[in-house]
Design a protein around this nucleic acid. Structure first.
Length: 551
RNA sequence: UGGGACGUCGUUCAACGGUAGGACAGCAGACUCUGACUCUGCUUAUUGGGGUUCGAAUCCCUGCGUCCCAGCCA
């Protein structure tokens, strides 16, 4: 079992009997956007801790801000959590909005205890009264309203007697606190807005700082794991747990969120990319969203493995996106069947191969997994190879095809290049080659070695396909750093559509989401835009390539 | 300049007073019908300065650096 400082705390708490040996966590997304790889880290932690300690983990939507939330997001989150392989406790997911009535009663309780009051300051005035980081705030003139008056005002807030922003409910703590979050934080605000679950039942909505600790307590969460930016909110979290009547005392523990090189992770920026159409949607394969990674061809296992590798700590971190790529490669190498596809075709004519003849080569589907079986791949007189695999005037370390040179066509024959045919513009249009009939299957009976093995597709049998090559969405390591405009730092080459790819027949009519390795090129996944007549493949990730001379 | 947190190979996680270790990346080699995979080897780190101790990444003091907080967002 992987360990980290949080699991150490849980272990210690279990040893001391702090929560009666019980472990309960929760994953609390706000349905205001799609989940991304950073959420995957949080899920692996929360569901993982629950699993490791035989505890429970709730999925709870933190749906306390109706103006930003939507059922579309709820549905996508449910799908992503499930796809990643996590199962929440309770049959149905939980919603903070289901607790609105109870939360309201807790607010009434706090008012009754003289610990909360209705403030009539405007937002601007409140900001002034709050003071600054270095100067204390001052009390609102409404701070000392009587309990009865506060109760009446709060009831009328709920009843809809005031417009948005006219009143707020505030905790009465300390306007001089060095922690700004403790300077009478807002607990409830008025929003005459339609909520995606409660409809128009409410026009006051609890703030995160109020709803979160109380919801945790209601669900008897033992360890409330959240990211570092909530550290300064913990005193308020504890204050609410201490002063409201709640059935449990959860403990908030903060860890560092995930950052990835060459990507943005903030929901605000991801939303902007989608809204302004810089990407095709939340599930654009270049997005760090779970749905984007899924469409790109990532597996849940690869993502979970990645989360294991990066660990959990309190120090701010920026993970090399190369580690994510390593994790998919490693997983896909084991499970993806192999096939041949030519992205940029260059025709070869085998002069000594009989015209009109073809044969079916028996090819293994996975070199390391015999159970994957074999398939027949058609071979004929005219075939396509990759344009990159031929050079008329090859440099020193170029092992592939060149005039007069012999290479192997994978699983087929050894062929020798006799001539490069050019058009009037001097461009190579096709290669004239000969094959050695004695090398069927790719083995030379005389034991001679060739340095290169090329992938190929029979021209007559090839299926036309579109292949989408993805690269990092941003061209700088830390987009938006400093005063930089992250949009200006987008990589103009993050998507390259290859329209004229030729793929072997077995690659036609594969279901969307199917993953395959195109030999020597990389891992690809069938896109949802794919049709039987015209398959579309997304490149998940390239194969590692130690040939560096290409430039 | 108030408060809170964090500083260990290029990146990241570990070492919990007793040999600074792993992963990724990088480099070199072996193998190979994928320049993939696999295998072998190598390079590189404790934020500075004091102190405590037989012994400090770890404890104490003091600098320095980075991040978070002044939403009726989460």
């Amino acid at each position: 079992m992987s360990s980290d400082f949080i699991r150490e705390i849980v272990t210690a708490d279990n040893a001391s009997g702090k929560h009666g040996g019980r472990v309960a966590t929760r994953f609390p997304p706000e349905p205001n956007g799609y989940l991304h790889i950073g959420h995957a880290k949080a899920m692996c932690l929360n569901f993982g801790v629950a699993r490791d300690f035989s505890g429970t983990c709730n999925l709870r939507f933190d749906d306390t801000n109706p103006v930003k939330e939507d059922v579309e997001y709820v549905e996508s989150i449910l799908e992503d959590v499930t796809w990643l392989g996590f199962k929440w406790d309770h049959d149905a997911p939980l919603y903070a909005s289901d607790y609105f009535e109870w939360l309201y009663e807790r607010a009434v309780e706090l008012i009754g205890k003289g610990l909360a009051y209705v403030d009539s300051l405007t937002a601007d005035e409140m900001r002034e009264y709050r003071g600054t980081l270095t100067a204390p705030g001052k009390n609102s003139p409404y701070r000392d309203r009587s309990v009865d008056e506060n109760l009446d005002l709060f009831r009328r807030m709920r009843a809809g007697e005031f417009p948005d922003g006219a009143q707020v409910l505030r905790a009465k703590i300390d306007m001089a606190s060095p922690n700004i979050n403790m300077r009478d934080p807002v607990l409830y605000r008025i929003r005459h807005a339609h909520h995606h679950r409660t409809g128009d039942a409410w026009c006051i909505y609890p703030m995160y700082d109020y709803a979160h600790p109380l919801s945790d307590a209601l669900e008897k969460i033992t360890h409330s794991l959240c990211t570092l930016e909530y550290e300064a909110h913990r005193p308020l979290y504890d204050w609410l747990i201490a002063h409201a009547t709640v059935p449990a005392s959860p403990q908030q523990i903060e860890f560092a969120r995930l950052n990835l090189t060459y990507t943005v992770m903030s929901k605000r920026k991801l939303l902007q990319l989608v809204n302004e159409k810089h990407v095709s949607g939340w599930d654009d394969p270049r997005m760090p969203t779970i749905s984007g990674l899924r469409r790109r061809g990532f597996t849940p296992e690869a993502i979970r493995r990645f989360c294991d590798e990066i660990g959990v700590a309190k120090r701010e971190n920026v993970i090399d996106v190369g580690l994510l790529e390593f994790c998919v490669r490693e997983d896909l190498n084991k499970r993806a069947p192999r096939a041949m596809a030519v992205l940029r075709p260059l025709k070869i004519v085998l002069e000594n191969y009989p015209e009109g003849q073809s044969e079916a080569m028996e090819v293994v589907n996975h070199p390391d997994d015999p159970s994957a079986g074999t398939r027949k791949v058609p071979f004929s007189r005219e075939i396509y190879i990759e344009r990159d695999d031929f050079l008329e005037d090859p440099p020193k370390k170029f092992f592939r095809l060149a005039p007069g040179r012999e290479v192997r066509l994978r699983n087929a024959y050894l062929v020798t290049c006799r001539e490069a045919v050019k058009n009037a513009a001097g461009e190579i249009t096709e290669l004239r080659c000969t094959y050695d009939p004695a090398t069927r299957g790719g083995d030379a009976p005389d034991g001679r070695k060739v340095k290169a093995t090329l992938h190929w597709v029979s021209a007559a049998h090839a299926v036309d396909a579109e292949v989408r090559l993805y690269d990092r969405l941003f061209s700088v390591e830390n987009p938006g750093a400093g005063d930089a405009d992250f949009l200006a730092q987008m990589n103009p080459h993050s998507l390259e559509r290859v329209a004229g790819a030729k793929v072997e027949p077995s690659l036609a009519a594969r279901p969307a989401g199917d993953r395959v390795q195109f030999e020597r090129l990389g891992y690809f996944a069938v896109d949802k835009d794919s049709t039987a007549a015209r398959p579309v493949f997304n490149r998940t990730v390239t194969l590692k390539d130690s040939y560096q001379v290409r430039g």
